[in-house]
């Protein structure tokens, strides 16, 4: 069997980088777990609600707030498109009204945290990421260095950044360079 290896393998080397003193930023990574996209057409909503309720998630969700239940997370990323992590295998739900797609090999997660995490984000994207505008539970889709990403706020100073695996190294490098003035700790497990 082929062993799945993180696109960030060469980056995830524990160490301390950038400015000396206290570290304002911690950077890490993790693979996505069973990340599926469901998409559809006219009857998308009914078909999607069936999948979501089977997974213990209720409603279609909002375009800015992730829904969570039973260790699963769902993001309504467009009117007819929802991403679900920890979804198991959704291929059986494929129908004329619903297209299911396994994106587990297409995305990886960059973990950005630390007291200066919001400062780093505000250097990277032109969106208000203060705690009032972007609190825990909220997500946004944007571009970092022109790479499309989904950023999930996990807490006061913690974010998960879903990046395409093909561009994950680039996104990592841009985040890391911007984080260095704050002092960076790379956390590898």
């Amino acid at each position: 069997m082929l062993e799945l290896c993180s696109p960030l393998n060469s980056k995830l080397q524990a160490g301390r980088f950038g400015a000396q003193g206290e570290t304002g930023i911690a950077l890490g990574g993790r693979p996505v777990r069973d990340l599926w996209q469901i998409a559809g057409w006219g009857d998308f909503e009914a078909a999607a609600i069936e999948v979501l309720s089977d997974l213990g998630l209720c409603g279609l969700g909002s375009y800015s707030l992730a829904s969570r239940a039973k260790g699963r997370t769902a993001w309504r990323i467009a009117p007819d498109k929802i991403l679900i992590e920890n979804a198991g295998n959704l291929s059986d739900y494929m129908s004329a009204n619903l297209a299911t797609l396994d994106l587990s090999h297409a995305r990886t997660v960059i973990l950005l945290s630390g007291t200066q995490a919001r400062d780093v984000l505000s250097q990277l994207i032109a969106i208000d990421v203060t705690e009032t505008a972007f609190p825990e539970g909220r997500f946004l889709q944007t571009g970092i260095h022109h790479v499309g990403v989904l950023i999930q706020c996990m807490g006061q100073n913690a974010f998960e950044i879903y990046a395409p695996v093909t561009w994950a190294e680039t996104v990592w490098e841009v985040i890391c360079e911007n984080a260095k003035p704050f002092g960076v700790e790379i956390v590898a497990d």
């Binding site: 375009y63 800015s64 467009a78 009117p79 032109a126 969106i127 946004l140 889709q141 944007t142 571009g143």
Partner: peptide, 9 residues
């Protein structure tokens, strides 16, 4: 869907 965004997006 996303709210107010920069034109560069």
């Amino acid at each position: 869907i996303c709210g107010l965004r920069n034109e560069t997006e």
